[in-house]
């Protein structure tokens, strides 16, 4: 566990693990809200998209017809919050017929093995 001091205290590594598709359940939106709130604490934050979670950052979402807020635009604001480590799990992406061109924000594609190594480095994992 690497801990460095920032002006506001100890910086820990937080990973948000997102495994649910958007809109069908509230998980994706809840995760995003927690990410935005917790961004105020200046921690080392990353977001992982696994299984159906990869759909959260899929391009071209248009929720007009279902009358729900299109919160996919908000992922593009994460950079303003200094959150820029977004990982998409490769096997999950491929199983769903998606490629690295299909995402609405810059993401890094990671294999399950690579992602599990990253998970091992975390201090806190938050699952949605």
């Amino acid at each position: 566990m690497s801990e460095e001091m920032s002006e506001s205290g100890v910086v820990k590594k937080f990973m948000y693990v997102n495994r649910k598709a958007p809109y069908g359940t509230i998980y994706a939106l809840e995760s995003l809200e927690v990410v935005l709130i917790a961004a105020a604490f200046d921690q080392d934050v990353s977001l992982a998209f696994i299984d159906d979670g990869v759909y959260q950052v899929a391009k071209g979402q248009d929720t007009k017809s279902i009358g729900v807020k299109n919160f996919s635009s908000t992922y593009r604001a994460l950079d303003d919050y200094d959150i820029n480590k977004l990982y998409v799990q490769k096997e999950s992406m491929e199983a769903r017929g998606l490629t690295d061109k299909d995402f609405l924000v810059p993401v890094e594609i990671k294999t399950a093995a690579e992602l599990s190594a990253l998970m091992e480095q975390q201090d806190v994992l938050l699952s949605f």
Binding site: K69, N70, S73, T74, R76, A77, D80, Y81
Partner: peptide
């Protein structure tokens, strides 16, 4: 653009 009101720092 982003569907959120930004935090004050942002």
């Amino acid at each position: 653009e982003y569907q959120i009101a930004p935090a004050v720092r942002v």
